[in-house]
Design a protein around this nucleic acid. Structure first.
Length: 391
RNA sequence: GGGUAGAUACCGAAGUGGCCAAACGGGGCGGACUGUAAAUCCGCUGGCUUACGCCUUCAUUGGUUCGAAUCCAAUUCUGCCCA
């Protein structure tokens, strides 16, 4: 096992903020496995790479011999973390949450070592709490402390409501730390406040205070905003190897360095051409969620599609020609809706044709009036990333 | 409750009777160039149409007018000021 100093050096990589580094080192010097907490709220059934940054760090702790504790916030998810929110979250039912929790666990164990992970649901303790216990807990935090939060302050300034249940959230998250005697809590930078409440409550309970270990929020594919479903700049863990690979290849070199840091905990290999480095990154991430084989497949698919521009061997969605008008605009528009569930107006489709995006078996078709002799087996290229095979 | 300013397409924002499907910027999309990278350049960005053009759209409803995003009235919502 590496020395505490060595461990610190390994762990520090990619961290946004550690409160505090000295405390962390001191804890590492205790020479026992530390309780490392990561709380996740199963609010959505599908998760993306942004969510895996914390898990990756947790895995690192695990590999160094520490105890990973994954808290599934079945109770807290129903409230909804107000962090960084300009609006109240919609409340979920316990059933919704438990359904999501199953997927979460499944995905989490693609990164964590299941044998060395303790999974707990915070409903375990919150469900049992009586009202006077809740009041007691509440009496330890002041309104003023809660209102210091930037997101609440902003909402009050902007005359957006802040509901009382929302200010319970940090208290609950903090209480989780007490219940599991956390030595370290991992979280995104937006979790700072919540994690600090955990320290306060631990002190009140006479426990040693946890180290707060914050990770940056992963930028999305656009390289600017944080990865989020609503911005459409995400890579979903459930996406196919080909899509995942392709999405990862579209990032900039700067962003690639970030992804190496945060998703692989490594530096970009300096001796490789940036494109090769990116292909390796993509293949490894795909492999993590879909297996080694899929990583290779993603790469092969990508290379024949884009490097060799050879679509003949690539698997493509099929577009049945039967019943379609024989002009190119109709076919293109149908291809989008049938094969990709994308609504393209005829105007849009015509624009693509006129602007030279459409290719039939490698030949550009730029006349919207064209009625080529379509035949089954031909490849119709729609845009940079989408093609279909006629059937 | 009183006053006042406003509500325009994905977002920001011009337009204040016809030349408005609506400037400009951002975003998005396509092309060229590439490493499906970045940067750069060009083009597109309500619907239908080969096109002339037609249709729907500037908060909602009704009105004035040959003609309304633009004028009037009512309604809804929002900002600011006063109480």
């Amino acid at each position: 096992m590496p020395t505490p100093e060595e461990q610190l050096a390994i762990l520090k990589r990619g961290a946004a903020q550690i409160i505090s580094e000295q405390d962390l080192l001191a804890k590492l010097k205790l020479g026992r496995p530390l309780n490392v907490k990561l709380g996740v709220d199963p609010t959505a059934p599908d998760i993306h790479l942004g969510f895996t940054v914390g898990l990756t760090k947790l895995r690192q702790f695990q590999d160094l011999g520490h105890q990973a504790i994954l808290i599934i916030g079945d109770f807290t998810a129903m409230i909804g973390d107000p962090s960084g929110r300009s609006k109240t979250r919609k409340q979920l039912t316990h059933d919704d949450v438990m359904r999501n929790a199953t997927t979460f666990k499944e995905q989490a164990f693609k990164i964590l070592d299941p044998a060395k992970t303790r999974v707990v649901f915070n409903g375990e303790w919150f469900e049992m709490m009586t009202f006077d216990q809740v009041m007691k807990l509440n009496s330890r935090v002041t309104m003023q402390q809660m209102l210091q939060r930037e997101d609440f302050k902003k909402r009050i300034d902007e005359k957006e409501p802040v509901f009382l249940h929302e200010i319970q959230y940090p208290i609950m998250q903090g209480w989780d730390s007490v219940m599991i005697k956390a030595d370290i809590e991992l979280g995104g930078t937006d979790q700072l406040f919540n994690c600090l409440v955990g320290r306060d409550l631990q002190r009140e309970e006479g426990q040693p205070q946890q180290v707060v270990f914050l990770l940056p929020l992963l930028e999305g594919l656009d390289g600017v905003n944080k990865m989020s479903k609503s911005l459409g700049n995400y890579v979903g863990l459930a996406e196919t190897p080909e899509i995942m690979f392709g999405k990862l290849m579209s990032i900039t070199d700067t962003l690639m360095a970030r992804y190496y840091d945060l998703l692989l905990c490594e530096s970009v290999p300096a001796d490789l051409h940036p494109m090769e480095a990116k292909k390796q990154l993509a293949a490894r991430i795909v492999a993590r969620y879909h297996g080694e084989e899929a990583g290779k497949r993603g790469r092969d698919d990508f290379e024949s599609r884009f490097s060799k521009k050879d679509l003949s061997t690539v698997e493509l969605p099929a577009l049945p020609l039967a019943g379609l008008a024989p002009d190119i605009v109709s076919i293109v528009s149908a291809a989008y809706s049938v094969c990709f569930q994308i609504a393209k107006s005829r105007g849009d489709a015509r624009r693509l044709v006129e602007q030279g995006s459409i290719q039939l078996d490698g030949e550009k078709v730029s006349d919207p009036k064209a009625t080529p002799a379509f035949a089954a087996g031909q490849v119709l290229k729609l845009d940079k990333t989408r093609s279909v095979r006629l059937a």
